[in-house]
Structure formats: C-alpha cells, structure tokens
C-alpha cells in the first residue's frame, strides 16, 4: 500500500466520501436501492494519472460520472481546483471547463451530423470565445496532435474508424483545455492494434501536457501501462490502492486485487 503522492498543494481533485444510491423502480413499486458508490474518497494531483479498475457493477463508471459533474452524489463532496462541484442545485456547467470526459463507445459519443472539425471547434468557440476561423485553425492543430490528418477533418463521424473517432473524442476533450480528463473505458471497444495506437497517444499526451487523468477500465493491464496509481473498486468501495508500476499478482496484498489479476488471460499457454 506504499503509494507516493504529490504534495498536498498540487491536489486538483478532492473527492470526500461520496455515496450514490440508485433506485430501480417502475413507478408503481419502489424497487430495491442499489448502492453504486459507497463512501469513496479520492485525490488526484495536478498532472497525475489515476486508474480505477473493477468488474462491471463495481461502481467505477458512477464514480467517473461523479467526478465529471454529471452524477450528483447523495452525500459527500467533490472539489475541483478548490471549487465545490455540487454546491448549487443545478448542474454547474462551469465545471466542464476544468473536467472533460471521453466515453467508451466512439460510435455514439460524437454528433453524427457535424464534421470532425466542427466537433472539435465547437468547444473552442463556446468556452474560449474564439471566432469561427480561429476555432477551425486551432481545431486542425489539435487534430494534428492526436494524429488525425486533414483528410479526415472534413468528414463526419460515420466516415471514420473506431480508432479515429476515439482520437477525435480526445481532441474534443483537449479543446476545452481542461485540467482533468476522465476516460471511461475509452480503449475497451477497440482492437488491440488500434488500442495500442490510442494508448501511445495517451502516453505522448502525458509527456507533452501537464494534465491529470482519471482512467476507468476493466482491463488492469491498460491501467498498469499508462497510470501512476491504481484504485481497485469492488461493490462500490475502493478496496485497494497501489502504485501502478509495481503491481503484479505477487505484490498485490488485497485478495480481490489478486483475484482480478489472476483472471487475466496470459499470452502463452504454459506461462
């Protein structure tokens, strides 16, 4: 459990014992409440890469939603850059200038009616008030940074492959110049070769930009590769925390983490 943390002053995101319960009901019956996130606290420092791993139903996506400002927790608090995220009744959209999200499914997360340039330029116009021409210019530069050629820029999402769409989603998130990007299973739906390309892009961004990332994945190897710190979630709680570089089946102390690691298929049949 020896985890290095950056200095307290660098803390960007502070999540204090958040809890979120969903009620499944059909309007007539109240249904049983499901505790999705149960008293989770988490800190992300400036420029730090934190990964959350867990099985489906462990609450990791709900946690992502809470950090992004789209799922209001029942209790607890979320502070981003010193600002209380859920202080007001309504959704505080100002928070989206600091926190951006890249979703799992690149086929449904981009507006099919807009061109790739428009998709990336829109947040620049909305959040930074730059005019259309300047926004387009900056959008092209961002697309170039994520490895999309100008040939792709004029197309709509329908004309792009899954990997290209995910690059476009990342460019759109970067356009806002956020301090934190939340990636919810953003590489899970991709083929291994395309996944490697996107992971390479993330590693390049890690070097080039001083951004904090919260990466949610059920694939512990992906997290071990790109993150600094790993949180393991089970049944709504963070059960283990580990520095990513040193995590193996042997070094994991928590039985649940070991179980997750041992279930990952190995490349060769006989070890």
């Amino acid at each position: 459990m020896s985890v290095e943390r950056k200095a307290e002053s660098d803390v960007l995101v502070e999540v204090e014992s958040v809890t979120k319960t969903y009620r499944t009901g059909n309007g007539l019956r109240r249904g049983t409440p499901t505790v999705a996130v149960d008293g989770v606290s988490l800190r992300i420092a400036q420029g730090e890469w934190v990964g959350v791993v867990g099985e489906s139903g462990s609450g990791k996506s709900t946690l992502a939603g809470i950090v992004c400002g789209v799922v209001r927790p029942d209790s607890g608090s979320v502070r981003v850059a010193g600002q209380e995220m859920y202080a007001r009744r309504g959704m505080d959209r100002i928070i989206w200038k600091t926190v951006q999200m890249v979703f799992q499914d690149p086929y449904t997360s981009l507006n099919p009616a807009m061109t790739i340039t428009e998709i990336v330029a829109e947040p620049l116009r909305l959040w930074h008030g730059v005019d259309r021409r300047e926004a387009d210019r900056q959008a092209m530069a961002l697309l170039d940074q994520v490895g999309l050629s100008s040939a792709v820029a004029g197309r709509r999402p329908g004309g792009l492959s899954g990997g290209q769409r995910q690059r476009a989603s990342i460019a759109r998130a970067l356009a806002v110049s956020p301090s934190l990007i939340v990636l919810d299973e953003s590489v899970s739906a991709l083929d291994v070769s395309v996944q490697a390309q996107i992971l390479q892009l993330l590693l390049d961004l890690k070097r080039e930009r001083d951004l904090a990332y919260l990466l949610i994945s059920h694939d512990i190897s992906v997290i071990r590769l790109v993150c600094d710190r790993i949180l393991v979630m089970n049944k709504g709680e963070v059960v283990d925390e580990h520095s990513a570089a040193s995590l193996t089946e042997e070094t994991a102390d928590h039985p649940y983490t070991r179980r997750l690691l041992s279930a990952v298929p190995r490349m060769t049949a006989s070890g």
Binding site: A196, S221, V222, L225, V264, M267
Partner: peptide, 23 residues
C-alpha cells in the same frame, strides 16, 4: 508478432509500447 507486441502486457514487460501503424 506485431499483434503480440501491441498488447499492454507486452508493453509493460518490454518497457515500451509498440503500435502497429495503419489498419
């Protein structure tokens, strides 16, 4: 060989990520 080298497991073991270009 390229597919094998693309996996995060291999990247962790080898200390660097290889990505197969193109599609």
């Amino acid at each position: 060989r390229a597919l094998q080298r693309c996996t995060p497991e291999h990247a962790i073991a080898a200390g660097g990520l290889y990505s197969l270009p193109g599609r």
